[in-house]
Design a protein around this nucleic acid. Sequence first.
DNA 1: CATGAATGAGCTTTCATTCAT
DNA 2: CATGAATGAAAGCTCATTCAT
Lengths: 178, 178, 178, 178
Amino acid sequence: MDKKEQIIGVATQLFAERGFQNTSVSLICETAEVSKGLVFHHFKSKQELLREIFSRTTELIKDINAADPSCSTPQAQLKDMLESFFAGLAANKSLFQFNLNMMLQPFTRSILQDLIDKRAAFLLQSVRRIFEEIDPENALVLSYGFIAELDGMALHYFSIYEDYPLAEMKNHLLKKYT
Amino acid sequence: MDKKEQIIGVATQLFAERGFQNTSVSLICETAEVSKGLVFHHFKSKQELLREIFSRTTELIKDINAADPSCSTPQAQLKDMLESFFAGLAANKSLFQFNLNMMLQPFTRSILQDLIDKRAAFLLQSVRRIFEEIDPENALVLSYGFIAELDGMALHYFSIYEDYPLAEMKNHLLKKYT
Amino acid sequence: MDKKEQIIGVATQLFAERGFQNTSVSLICETAEVSKGLVFHHFKSKQELLREIFSRTTELIKDINAADPSCSTPQAQLKDMLESFFAGLAANKSLFQFNLNMMLQPFTRSILQDLIDKRAAFLLQSVRRIFEEIDPENALVLSYGFIAELDGMALHYFSIYEDYPLAEMKNHLLKKYT
Amino acid sequence: MDKKEQIIGVATQLFAERGFQNTSVSLICETAEVSKGLVFHHFKSKQELLREIFSRTTELIKDINAADPSCSTPQAQLKDMLESFFAGLAANKSLFQFNLNMMLQPFTRSILQDLIDKRAAFLLQSVRRIFEEIDPENALVLSYGFIAELDGMALHYFSIYEDYPLAEMKNHLLKKYT
DNA sequence: CATGAATGAGCTTTCATTCAT
DNA sequence: CATGAATGAAAGCTCATTCAT
């Protein structure tokens, strides 16, 4: 019944499925069954709504990608990270799609620039912390490679290959990194 | 003097820099210094223009990603492919950006669906042919992993990390695969 | 102050005077002193606006053509019908013109197909009911002939003959049918 | 092979079926398989093409409506006129439709004003000549009434009633006027 | 006689946003 | 908090017409 949350939920879904520019405020209103005035009462602009949503998803992403700090070995932490990443891929499909969309579309990227930078730095940092324990000399390159593989797979899974062998790819990575 | 090519060139650039939906036909016309009517004389619609451009870039991508068939060993072929991929990344920045944009934006993806599918299948195939010689059993997974790494790096290089260590990543991959 | 009615009134007038296709939405807006956006806020499309107008005029036409049911003889009913038809012709000039235009222009006819059919059936029916009492055997042909004469005169009066002798034609018909 | 005639023929057909404003020069060119330049080589403008066509159809209409001057009695002349009118209705459907369209659409009417006036005067004149012999006192009203009936029936037959009883109406008129 | 590239004005429609209620 | 009428700019696209070849 909280209409503000209703708007956010519907907008997230629609932005993920149709892209930001291809989703009009009118469509959001119809889908969420609220008036146009209300959207602009709660959010200064359509772009502000997007930023609110992106911020929220950053928190979710952080949770999903967080390595369990209680794990003793870095390998176990990587394993944990991979497990939750692949679990998230399947479970929060539209959330991942939303993020890829927003970060790659030049228009939305410019709106979200600062938020994207912060999130990307955080993710790199949390991976790097693990690789520093494994191979301090190559930690940065290894970290970049690791997340490149993950993001590349997400990209292929969501947008390119219809029958992507997600389970096999996960096992492949698990073998490789642990 | 060939205004049709002029339109295609300008549109490619603008679509890459600003995205498809954020690039109006008017902007293309102003930039290319042609009339609006001419665009629709040569292309049935803005979407048809996009498809023409995407088809052309597919040919370019094929050339860039083509492994030298004269290379004796599969490792040499992979090396060759990596070299031309990273050379292309730097040289044809806007072309790569264009492709990532179009494939990830839901709206453009739906317009280009069939062309994307064909291209993706071709690229997978050309990589797979090499891995079949190296490790027939895991060829498919290895191929998917390989292109995931490449695409993931492209994605990070273009859209996420400002100071991406492209040269180091290239060396990292060369060591790993050859 | 009711801008929606303002739009409908202006559009009816302009459609009648200039035809549907020769009346741009911009012209309607300028004349009605409303913004372009408002027209499409109230009507899904220009065609939808036309349908709304046509439906409304059907009601008016029904009123005008309605025979007084209190008249005892069918001849009196015909007389009544003729009187109100010719009164309407002179008084509601643009309304009749509008109707002829819309029904004869292939483009508008296709848009209004169903509405035209319903209205035509209704008018035929209400005339036929009278002729059934006069000459049941030839009622249908007489009815068709009757409305052919009326519509033919309207057509000539509005669109063809500059100095149409409307009064004389009315007397001619009154003599003939009563 | 005479491309000018080809253009005229195609344009007549299309104007009749779709209306003048709803038929673009491009469509005429595609259908007639000629270039746009050629249309404007032969006709100064689209409106000029319309006038040429309308002039030509006037001649055809005159032929169809012409009473055989060899007929001895005015009744026989009326009969002859009715016969050829109804024959024409069925045989030259698109020609009649074209004429009704052009005369009723405000935009085309203004283009063809002078031609319409001349034709209408001619038709009235040729009918009147007959009625002058039958009933000189009421000749004008009878003439207007006669052509009103004919045009009204044409209008209903082409544009309003799907199952118009054309044959019965013809017999009705024949009985009435002969 | 014939082509088709090129133009520019104008078309219908969409959209983010404002504001009185 | 909530509505929806109202705006005005900009979008994609059509079209009659011109002109170099």
